[in-house]
Simulated scan of single mutants.
Amino acid sequence: MLLRGKVVGSEIPRFKHRWFGILEVEADGEKYDLYMTGNAAQWFLTGDEVEVEILKEPKERDGKLVLDFDDYKLWKFYEGDRIPVWPLFEKEVEAKRYSPLTGELLYTYKIRAREAKYESDFEAIAELEQYHYASQKEKVALWRCENGHIFEANTKQRCPVCGAESHILEIKGSTPASRFLIFELVKKEEYEPRILSYVRVDPPIPLMHRRLPNGEIEKKVREKVFPEEWFHPAFWPERIMKELYEE
């Protein structure tokens, strides 16, 4: 069933904002709560026009019609374009390995590339991150226990203050707009990891303006705040590769 409607609100729990959010949509006289990641929900504004394809019968919770992560597809309309928003990006590929001696096919890995959306995805990202940057002094993630204590750690563990269960709060160094692409094995042996690697995707830093104490607006101060080489050239792969090889 395909419905055309508008966003009437959203809810992004402060301590679950990476992996949980609710988008409230009104269509055909009904209100639906669409469960999604907070990363996706944060880009909607009240009044945005959307289209929802309902894949499974909505569930009723606390008097509301709820569509869970896998129950719907969602598009947003922007300047006349119909933009797919949910489900998040996902693609499966095969990686084949051959014998260097005979050329015979030895085994095939089936890999799924998708945007991180579950709490367990972000826990796995933190575990991978620790092998790059972490040390006993530098932790890669913030965690929050069920009693509200926030602490730093590289992997999921019980709260060091009260011993309660904890949930991942944030990957340190990421921004609220950061998205994460993960690569996972579709079929794996017991000794193989579920998630092999990840890529953090950050949007470009936008043009920055600031209001001075006298009320005047100073425009485009981005280059005054960050080094020029961060932006110029904005995208020049040939030059980037040349500089890497020269190093």
Score class of each variant (00 low, 15 high):
L23E: 00
E115K: 11
Y107Q: 06
D81E: 14
S10G: 12
W86E: 00
V8N: 00
D71K: 04
E123D: 13
A95R: 12
D28F: 04
G215Q: 06
Y118N: 14
P84M: 13
H209N: 07
P237L: 13
N147M: 12
R114C: 05
Y78G: 11
L142Q: 01
A40G: 01
L88Y: 11
K16N: 14
H149S: 01
K16P: 09
S166C: 14
E90L: 13
V186F: 06
E223R: 15
I171S: 06
W19T: 12
L207Y: 11
R4E: 14
N214I: 01
K156L: 09
A116M: 03
E51Y: 07
A126Y: 04
E192C: 01
E189S: 12
K137L: 09
R14A: 15
K31G: 01
R112I: 05
L74V: 09
T108Y: 03
G148R: 04
V85H: 08
V186L: 04
F77R: 02
W43H: 15
L101R: 12
K188W: 04
F180T: 00
A177D: 00
G9E: 11
E30A: 12
P160G: 01
V50W: 05
L128I: 02
R239H: 08
E165P: 09
I217C: 03
G38D: 06
E238H: 06
Y72C: 03
I12R: 00
E60I: 13
Q136V: 10
I195T: 02
R222H: 02
K56G: 05
P176C: 09
I12Q: 04
Q136I: 11
V7A: 04
S120D: 11
E49M: 05
T155I: 09
G21M: 03
E123Y: 02
L101S: 12
H209A: 05
V225G: 12
F231E: 15
G5P: 02
